[in-house]
Each structure stands twice: as structure tokens, then as C-alpha cells.
Amino acid sequence: MKNTSYSIETRSIIKTYQSDFGVIQAVDDVSLQVSPGEFVALVGPSGSGKTTMLSILAALLKPTSGSILLDGQDISAMSETERVALRREKIGFTFQANNLLPYLTAVENVELMLRLNNKLDKAGSLRAQELLARLGLGQRLNNLTGQLSGGQQQRVAIARALIHNPSLVLADEPTASLDTERAYQVVETFAGLIHEQNRAGIMVTHDLRMCEFVDRVLQMRDGKLVATYNDRKSIMKLVNSRAGD
């Protein structure tokens, strides 16, 4: 049954791998829902399954069982070609590193998403410039990515993730290569844009301090979803604990 009030919804996702040491259950019966305008953090220690879960949500990896509904469409039943099209049209990404194409300028990197979706026109180009300006990169539009700092590169990646109005925005450890001050700036900006543009956002992070800006925290351990922090008080308690798991 579809529930179209959620941007993304997973039902009993299981992902198992065959390794030299036997079968590994990377994700074990995870169900979650994220609504438009909601920014969710997926936290947990290394090996908890959060990166695998992100890959499944990003339509980069098929689950062993379970279903994933993005805007009501079941991703798990899609062919590879359909999933490529889905990633291009409905999902925005930022990665830990190597986010941008080094031979394109900041604005060209952002425009690339519009170009891939055949939506690059003057208005789109202007929107890309405005978005970068809002992210504090108005003076850096025509800089190659190599001429930008790590934080600036992440902000370009955020602009690229949002420019084509995706339903879901995914961020994998977006602050991993940044110092604390820049990390706060990047996540705060990211959260602001997700709320403002009414997108569903999911951020995988091991840095609990970054959860200060999210609406909900989902904690994973050994492939399972073990805790959910819904209210600001409990989230801040988690942030201040910095326990990580």
C-alpha cells in the first residue's frame, strides 16, 4: 500500500552479503519514513549498516528483500536503467569527498544536474548562480573546484544536490573532511535549504554534533534500527553526549 505523504519510505529492508566468513547481514529489517521538509540523520558506529542503508536509499544498491518507495514508486522493483533515471531526476547527492568534477567550474558543476535532466536554460542557469550566491559562493561561480576550499566544495555539492528539485537529498558524511566550524556552517545551510525547499533529507554521519540541525535522528547498530530521537530535547541530549552509539 502506498503512502504518498512520505517522500521516502522503506519497509522491512534486509541486505545480506556473502563473504569469506559466511553470510553478513548488513541491514536487518529496517523500516523508516521521511516526509517532505524533514531532515533526518542516520547515525551509528562503523559497520552499523548506515552506509549500506544510504546506498539502498540512493538506488545504488538493491536490497535482498523489502521495498523502498520514493514518491510512491517502488525502487526495489526497478531495472538498472530506471534506477539511473530515478537518481538523475529525483535524488540529490553529496558525498564525503571527490564530489565535483575538477574540470568544471562551481556553477558548471551545479548546472550539470540540469544539463543531465535536459532542463538547462537561462532561468536554470540563473537559479544555479543564485543558489551558489545564497551559499556564499557568489564570487566563486567561475572558479574551478581545485581553487575552492573543502567547505566551499561541499557547498557547491549541496547546490548541485538541490538544483534540480529532487524529492530526496542524501548526504554521506558531508562534514568528514571539514574542520568543526565549517562543518557546522555546511550542515546548518544544508538543513536550512532542505526545510525551505521542502525536500526530504537524509544525512549519514558519525559526528553526533551535526545532529543539532536535524529534525530526527535514527540510530543503527549491527544493521538494525535501534533508536529514534524525535524531539529536540532528546536530540540535543544525544548531541551533547557525543557518544556516537
Binding site: A58, L60, T81, V84, A85, L86, R87, R88, E89, I91, F93, F95, A97, N98, N99, L100, L101, P102, L112, M113, L116, R160
Partner: peptide, 16 residues
Amino acid sequence: VAQIGVLKAIGTTNTI
């Protein structure tokens, strides 16, 4: 490799 990975992740087809 990483650049091509990013391109594919954001929905660039193998044909492109």
C-alpha cells in the same frame, strides 16, 4: 575512477 563514480551516482548513463 571516483569522478566517473560520481557521474554515474548522480544519474549519468553509461552511454554518456
